[in-house]
């Protein structure tokens, strides 16, 4: 299956997506902690590919918002990358991933991401960009990740509000990605 948006060079759709339910999230940040830990070996909220933003002074549901990489059908980040570091990994379910070795740190992918906050994460220590790879490359985790495996954030979430799906969510707006989760939607 390919993306057939008019006027855009067709790229194959990803075969895996993360869905969240911000309204039920318990705000523990465990997903952010393990995301950075399985990828980097240390825990750092600023290096997590999934971001849970919370203001504990606000009332529900304005107190918490989860944002995750959307594995866009039309990935502007991929198209913006001048080195081919950010590419569609056809060997792994067409997910949009970064080859850190090729990343030159130009931040064009971050600028290109049309969502706020941008889903590409900047690592100031390495001077390179990071993004969700659905746990395809997790040196500090024993599980097999990627679109055919497990995702650390999904596994750790005590509220079960992060789910993996193969079905492409509705691209317009946030409703396809942040919704009340049910088995039917996830399948």
């Amino acid at each position: 299956m390919v993306n057939k948006s008019p006027g855009v060079k067709a790229l194959p759709l990803a075969e895996g997506y993360l869905l969240v339910d911000s309204k039920k999230c318990q705000g523990c940040l465990s997903c952010m902690m393990v995301c950075s830990m399985v990828h980097e070996g240390s825990i750092c909220l600023s290096l997590s590919r999934i971001q849970v933003m919370q203001n504990i002074l606000k009332k529900w549901p304005e107190d918490i918002k989860i944002v995750q990489c959307r594995q866009c059908a039309n990935p502007l980040c991929v198209k913006a990358c001048p080195t081919g570091a950010l590419y569609v990994d056809t060997a792994n379910g067409n997910i949009r991933v970064i080859d850190e070795a090729k990343c030159n740190g130009c931040k064009k992918c971050i600028t290109a991401c049309p969502f706020l906050p941008q889903r590409i994460v900047w690592n100031p220590e390495t001077g390179k960009a990071l993004k969700c790879d659905l746990c395809l490359n997790t040196p500090y985790w024993k599980e097999k990740g990627g679109p055919s495996g497990k995702q650390a954030c999904v596994e750790i979430c005590p509220q079960q509000v992060i789910k993996f799906t193969r079905k492409a969510p509705k691209q317009q707006g946030d409703g396809g990605y942040d919704l009340e989760l049910s088995e039917e939607i996830v399948k």
Partner: peptide, 16 residues
């Protein structure tokens, strides 16, 4: 929602 402290899997508080 149920809420917790950072890093915890329990859900001993709530926010409405």
């Amino acid at each position: 929602r149920q809420v917790s402290c950072a890093g915890c899997f329990w859900k001993c508080k709530s926010r409405t």
